[in-house]
Simulated assay, not measured.
Amino acid sequence: MLRSMTGYGKAVAKLNGKSVTLEIRSLNSKQLDMNLRLHPALRDNEPEIRAVVNRMLERGKVELTGNIDFTGTDLPAVINRPVAVSYYNELSSLARELGASEENLLSVVMKMPEVTRLSKEEITVEEWNSIFTSLNEALQQLDEFRKHEGELLERDFILRIKTIQSLLAEVEPFEQNRNLQLREKLRNSFADFIDNNNFDTNRFEQEIIYYLEKLDITEEKVRLAKHCKYFLETLIEDASNGRKLSFVSQEIGREINTMGSKANDADIQKLVVRMKDELEKIKEQLANIL
């Protein structure tokens, strides 16, 4: 089952006098790139939080935000009274000296450095258990989001691979016609030479065979068909095989490119261009698969 690397989850842990809100977002990335923005009271257990996220998400650019909202009567911050008084007296003196208004000085003081500071909030073991339960809920939501996105991408991949397979089936009639035209063209090119000179017919046939073998795309068609089949088989495996599918898509592209270089036919080239277009759209989406 495919999983996208894009996802979102949110959960809230209701604690005594406070609530902890955990939000987690993820985008595509080649490896796990984790950015945690935690309330100071949550930072003591940051390594454990990282371990849980790492185990669940594997890959992606992940941003986890942990905020605390205080719902009780206890204040989460304390006022440094001596510093506040000192600021107020200095500003009041300056205002009188300049003849300025002393209104709203308190609001100005409260914005000054070191006036307020967070009190140390100790989180109990029981509260941490509740927080980790909520963290797992948020991660589960994100995983469900990834699964849903993966299902949409899977249907798109199947449609595009089947389109490539259909285009591949259209190549054969043009290939047969091309071979007949090439053979006739070679015969006409050497017609005068054959009529007016001694000519080794066997050697001429050998040269035609060699020339046609250089343009033969049978092996490329067979390999392309096998790669497309393998891509579809990999899609329905239990694991989300983003990297594996990327490697298979590279092999598909290699066969399509070789067919294009050996085609020597406008109609086949048109089919090759359409195959490339479908494959490029697949590759763009594969960058977001876990």
Rank of each mutant, 00 (worst) to 15 (best):
R203Y: 07
I68W: 00
Q285R: 01
L91P: 03
E97W: 05
L152V: 15
E284I: 11
R50Q: 04
E58I: 14
S93Q: 14
K276C: 03
M112H: 04
S101F: 06
E121S: 05
E151K: 14
E90K: 09
K18E: 07
K111W: 03
S166G: 04
L106V: 15
E103M: 05
T201P: 02
S107T: 12
I49C: 08
L91F: 06
N202C: 10
R146P: 07
V85Q: 09
V222T: 15
G242K: 00
K229H: 12
K162E: 08
N129S: 09
E255H: 13
A191Y: 12
L212R: 07
V115E: 11
T234K: 01
E63T: 07
D216H: 09
N136T: 12
K120V: 13
T71S: 14
E46N: 11
P82S: 01
N179K: 13
P173H: 14
D265F: 00
I49S: 08
D156F: 02
S134F: 00
N288D: 03
N136A: 11
S4L: 01
R243H: 10
K221C: 11
L135V: 02
R223L: 14
R203M: 08
E126F: 10
V52H: 02
P47L: 11
T218F: 06
S240L: 06
C228K: 03
L286G: 02
N288E: 02
T21V: 14
Q181E: 15
E122W: 00
D238L: 14
I131S: 02
E97Y: 04
G7T: 05
K185T: 14
E144V: 12
L245K: 00
A11Y: 06
R96K: 11
Q250W: 03
D33Y: 06
I131P: 00
E213W: 11
R274N: 10
S26R: 06
T234V: 04
T124W: 03
K283P: 04
T234M: 03
A11S: 15
V222R: 14
F199Y: 15
K270C: 08
E251R: 07
M34S: 10
K162G: 01
N80E: 04
E255W: 09
S130H: 14
E122L: 03
F231C: 06
T71M: 09
N202D: 15
